[in-house]
Amino acid sequence: MGVLALAEPAYAGEQPGNTQGSNTEQSGGGDGSGIYATARITYSGSVAKGGGRGNVTSADVNWTPPPCWYAPFLGAKDFKKLMSKDIESQMNTPGIGGTAGAALSELKRHYEDDYGWTDTPGYKDYNVENDGKGMFWAAVENPDEPDILKRSSCNDLPFWVENGEAPPPQHEEAITPEILAALAYQHMQLPDTKVTLAPEGTTKVNLPTWAWLDKAVFDEVQATAALNVPGFNIQATTTAKPVALKLEPGTKDADTYPASGECAINADGSIGEPYAKGKADETPPCGLRYLRSSGNGTYKLRATITWEIAWTGTGGAGGDLPNGTFGAEQDITVQEIQSINR
């Protein structure tokens, strides 16, 4: 059976409203009768401004955040008010009949007259006798999912969940700490760290250029996603730790150190080694060497940091998420001089 198209969205809105590095609290309001506003996922820690999608990119091209999920929506009385009004308005619309009219009639029986299907129990009078003891759950579309078919794939009718109880097992996409962890990952804002170079900006053909990142500007990042409504409170925190730096010179006429271009993290949390006087002829542990002049232009050196990402959540849940990457480009001028004294 298809999902009823409510006059007001039946989606528990994922509407973050915080800025990077800030803590926010957005909770559903109530009037003391078990009627609560649409549940919202809140974000805190280092997340994209406005709660929008962050700048971390999964190193696993097959990984995507959840396109949709089910979350607490409304208390019984408020759900009845919304649904009964919408069903009546659609049934009274001229031209509604046949299959559409039958579906609306069936839906009305489902919520009013205890009419159910396999694994889908019906309700009497929208379950208002249990108002305050639970909530109806409804589908949520991830606004950052570009594929509308995936985004709308959670098409079960709104269903009732008692406070403190787990959603029925047939609703596999019900919100969990793991889903929250994936959403925190999706919104995570990583620092835009510029790699330190020596020489900086302008170097010479065949001269080793040293590259490094100090631990002081290269530390772990955390982001938290939480959902808190009466009878249901869960959260998850993702932690990103830098583990490697990859250098891409911007031209094939260059060597990288090491040859893979991937510089591992040091024991003290730094990457590479700062250049010191007298090391001009040494091979840097992390760096590169250009073999051809950039002429009147520049090369685009891209430095990409790989972040190892794990999560912990409510009830001791936790695990690993795909490594994340974030990179930036720097203009490098390479001059046609064979050697230089430092």
Score class of each variant (00 low, 15 high):
Pro72His: 02
Pro72Arg: 05
Pro72Asn: 09
Pro72Phe: 07
Pro72Ala: 06
Phe73His: 06
Leu74Asn: 14
Leu74Ser: 14
Lys77Ile: 10
Lys77Trp: 06
Lys77Met: 14
Asp78Thr: 08
Asp78Phe: 09
Asp78Lys: 14
Asp78Asn: 14
Phe79Ser: 06
Lys80Pro: 09
Lys80Cys: 09
Lys80Arg: 15
Lys80Ser: 06
Lys81Gln: 04
Leu82Tyr: 03
Met83Asn: 01
Ser84Gly: 05
Ser84Thr: 09
Ser84Asn: 09
Asp86Ser: 04
Asp86Gly: 11
Ile87Tyr: 04
Glu88Tyr: 11
Gln90Trp: 03
Met91His: 08
Thr93Tyr: 10
Pro94Cys: 10
Pro94Ser: 06
Pro94Gln: 14
Gly95Cys: 09
Gly95Trp: 08
Gly97Pro: 04
Ala100Cys: 04
Ala100Ser: 07
Ala100Lys: 08
Gly101Val: 00
Ala102Lys: 05
Ala102His: 03
Leu107Val: 00
Lys108Thr: 07
Arg109Asp: 04
Tyr111Ser: 02
Asp113Tyr: 09
Asp113Val: 05
Tyr115Pro: 05
Tyr115Leu: 05
Tyr115Val: 06
Gly116Pro: 02
Trp117Tyr: 10
Trp117Arg: 08
Thr118Arg: 01
Asp119Arg: 01
Thr120Trp: 03
Pro121Glu: 00
Pro121Phe: 00
Gly122Tyr: 08
Tyr123Asp: 01
Lys124Trp: 02
Lys124Leu: 05
Lys124Pro: 01
Asp125Val: 08
Asp125His: 12
Tyr126Val: 01
Val128Asp: 03
Val128Thr: 14
Val128His: 02
Asn130Gln: 13
Gly132Tyr: 04
Gly132Phe: 04
Gly134Ala: 03
Gly134Pro: 00
Gly134His: 01
Met135Gly: 13
Met135Lys: 15
Met135Phe: 15
Phe136Ala: 07
Phe136Gln: 05
Phe136Leu: 06
Trp137Leu: 01
Ala139Gly: 13
Val140Glu: 15
Val140Ser: 15
Glu141Leu: 11
Glu141Asn: 11
Asn142Gln: 12
Pro143Lys: 09
Asp144Ala: 11
Glu145Ala: 10
Glu145Gly: 06
Pro146Asp: 11
Ile148His: 15
Leu149Arg: 13
Leu149Tyr: 14
Leu149Lys: 14
Arg151Pro: 14
Arg151Met: 10
Ser152Asp: 12
Ser152Asn: 15
Ser152Val: 12
Cys154Glu: 10
Asn155Met: 13
Asn155Thr: 11
Asp156Leu: 15
Leu157Gly: 10
Leu157Cys: 12
Pro158Leu: 07
Phe159His: 01
Phe159Leu: 03
Val161Ala: 03
Glu162Met: 12
Glu162Trp: 13
Glu162Leu: 10
Gly164Thr: 00
Gly164Ser: 02
Gly164Arg: 00
Glu165Ile: 04
Glu165Arg: 10
Ala166Asn: 00
Ala166Leu: 02
Ala166Cys: 03
Pro169Phe: 00
Pro169Tyr: 00
Pro169Leu: 02
Gln170Glu: 01
His171Asn: 08
His171Leu: 07
Glu172Trp: 02
Glu172Ser: 14
Glu173Trp: 13
Ala174His: 04
Ile175Asp: 11
Thr176Arg: 14
Thr176Phe: 08
Thr176Tyr: 12
Thr176Asn: 09
Glu178His: 13
Glu178Asn: 15
Ile179Val: 12
Leu180Phe: 13
Leu180Asn: 13
Ala181Lys: 06
Ala181Asp: 10
Ala181Trp: 10
Ala182Gly: 14
Leu183Cys: 09
Leu183Arg: 12
Ala184Pro: 12
Ala184Ser: 15
